[in-house]
Design a protein around this nucleic acid. Sequence first.
DNA 1: ATCTAATGATACTATATTTGTATCATTAGT
DNA 2: ACTAATGATACAAATATAGTATCATTAGAT
Lengths: 137, 137
Amino acid sequence: MKLITRDTDYALRALVFIARSMDRVVAVTELVQELGIPRFFLRKILQLLHKKGLLKSFKGKGGGFILNRLPQELSLLQVMGVFQGRFSLNECLLKKHLCPNIRTCILKKRIKNIESYVARELEAITIASLIKKYART
Amino acid sequence: MKLITRDTDYALRALVFIARSMDRVVAVTELVQELGIPRFFLRKILQLLHKKGLLKSFKGKGGGFILNRLPQELSLLQVMGVFQGRFSLNECLLKKHLCPNIRTCILKKRIKNIESYVARELEAITIASLIKKYART
DNA sequence: ATCTAATGATACTATATTTGTATCATTAGT
DNA sequence: ACTAATGATACAAATATAGTATCATTAGAT
Ligand code: FES
Ligand code: FES
């Protein structure tokens, strides 16, 4: 089972490419050619990133997208948030019959700990950290 | 987005209940009454747990299930494995165009680290640790 | 032996999510 | 006016999740 869905994946790649293009406006056509993502699907993804404020868009001829955040403030966690909602393991594993001590439930605490660890790590994976470390072919 | 699906969830509750019943054979009917899980769905789940060797089953009148593992050697990770397959974030986020240094890819390493952390934690959540800490109502 | 209450195996159905397509309106550069 | 881009929105296909149903097999009880 995968934690990261395809749209998150595609979005991340597009964002990395756009970030590398600095302040140049990048059109969908270019991204499709570079990344090999189905055109209409990618458009929908970029439109959503725009609606959520992660991208700035320009309509009309010569239009396209640029980042609307600093690369160091744009994380994988945020991108996942856009397409997959908030990450969690599961609300409550042992319902009332099996786990009466809701206040002191240690299992719940352990689950929350895992969740926040993962969230922290995914937040640390920023676009900036990705464009720094990898050169283009 | 939830990491744990319903069948894993149900399976865990059933296993906890069965573990608490010690060496007594527990039938589906009893579990349905206690846990309020749809009968046929629960049957399918238990049959799969049996096929995967986590439960021992007894057919015929007075039949049912008992654990086929020591509670301290039966973890949430194993149960998830049965119903959801191996947990992973995503194979490779930035394919060859964006991430040419496959051998030294730091992103990949970070992702693997998150995965193995989560796996370790989920393995530490054993049935034994659950039946010890919570009394029945 | 027969009845009965349990699981084994397997196929089917329904619902939700993921993934992808298509169309028309709007905008802006030339 | 023409053209090349995104915005909004609806539609459709594929897959995964959740749940049902049926018949065969087994073993205890009488
Ligand atoms: S598992 Fe939900 S309160 Fe303990
Ligand atoms: S992300 Fe796949 S090799 Fe770097």
